[in-house]
Design a protein around this nucleic acid. Structure first.
Lengths: 168, 168
DNA sequence: ACCTGAACACCGTTCAAGT
DNA sequence: ACCTGAACACCGTTCAAGT
C-alpha cells in the first residue's frame, strides 16, 4: 500500500473544487482528480457514487457562495447587481458548473434552491415573475459576457448601468 | 471501394445538422457522423479540417435562422420577443450550439454577427447598450428555461409578459 | 483523390483480484 | 475496507498503407 489513509469523501470534493478552479470544467476528469489524490480513478468509486455526485456538490457550493455574496453586498439593487457580476467574473468555472450546467436537483440539499429564489424575490421587492425577469437579465448579461459574445469594443459597464435602470 | 462517390463537404455539414437535431450536441461525434455517411471517422478529415469547422458551420446556420425568424415576426417588440422564445424552444439543440457554445468568430462568415447586432439595435430603437440589455434579458430567459432552471410551477408566460413590459 | 485499420491520448465506469 | 490493473464502450485526431 502506498498510503496508510485514503482520501475521505470531503477531501475528494475539496480537491475537485480546487481542480475546477485551476483547470475549468473540461479539466475536471475523474482521472485527473484521482491523480491529485495519489490514487487511481477506479478507487474514487469507493468514496463517491459517480461524477454527478461531485458536480452536484460543486453546484451546491456555488449556490451557497452566490447567496452569501449577494447578501453581503450593499442594500441597493445596483450594489447587488454589480456584486453578481463581480462574483461571476471572478469565479467563471464555478459559475459554469452552477448556472450553465443542468441543475442536479435531486442531488443537492433540499431547500437550497428555494432559499435563493426567496432571497431574490425579497431583493427585487415584487412578485415571482418580476424576480425571475430580473434574474434572467443578470444571468443573460453574465452568460453573454463570459462566453465572449459581446463585441470586443462593447462598453459593458455602460450596458450594466442601463440594465440596472431597466429593473429600477 | 464501397461507394463510388464519397460525401461532399456540403453533404457532411447537412448530415451534421440532422444529427444535431436528432441527438443533440452531445450526440454529435465525428464517429457517429461518419456512420451516417457510411464512411469511417478518419475519412471525414479529407473533407473538413476538424470538428470545429462543423460547429462553426452550425453556428452560422443558427445565426442566419435566428435573424430570419426575428425579421419575419410581427413588428412589435412583443412579437419579436415571443418569436425568439418560440424559435429557441423549437430548436433547443441549435440554440445550444449557436448561443451556449463559445462563438468561433474566426470561422464564421464575416459580417454575420454584426448584421444581427445591427438588426437588434434597429428593433429596440435605441443605442447599443439598450440593445445589449434587451438581448441579455431574452437570452437569460431562454437559457434558464431550457436548462430547467425555473421551478416547475413557474408561470413562464407571465414571466415573459413582465419581461417585455420591462423593455417596453 | 479518397478511404481504411491501427494507433495515440483521452473519457466515465465496472469488476475480478489482491491486500 | 480499500486499492489496483485490465477491460469496456466511448472521444478527436494522425498516419502509413492501400486502391
Amino acid at each position: 500500500m502506498a498510503n496508510t489513509n485514503g482520501p475521505t469523501r470531503e477531501r475528494i470534493k475539496e480537491e475537485a473544487y480546487l481542480l475546477l478552479q485551476e483547470k475549468g470544467l473540461a479539466g475536471l476528469s475523474m482521472r485527473a482528480l484521482a491523480d491529485r489524490l495519489h490514487i487511481k480513478a477506479p478507487s474514487l468509486y469507493k468514496h463517491v457514487g459517480d461524477k454527478e455526485e461531485i458536480i452536484a456538490d460543486l453546484q451546491a457550493r456555488g449556490i451557497s457562495e452566490f447567496a452569501a455574496i449577494i447578501q453581503q453586498a450593499g442594500k441597493s439593487k445596483k450594489s447587488k447587481a454589480l456584486a453578481y457580476r463581480k462574483w461571476a467574473k471572478e469565479n467563471p468555472h464555478l459559475y459554469e458548473v452552477t448556472l450553465r450546467t443542468p441543475l442536479l436537483r435531486s442531488r443537492i440539499p433540499s431547500g437550497l434552491e428555494e432559499g435563493v429564489t426567496h432571497m431574490i424575490i425579497e431583493i427585487t421587492g415584487k412578485d415571482h415573475e418580476h424576480a425571475r425577469a430580473v434574474w434572467a437579465l443578470m444571468h443573460g448579461l453574465v452568460d453573454l459576457e463570459i462566453a465572449g459574445r459581446f463585441p470586443e469594443n462593447a462598453d459593458l459597464d455602460k450596458t450594466w448601468k442601463r440594465a440596472i435602470e431597466l429593473i429600477g
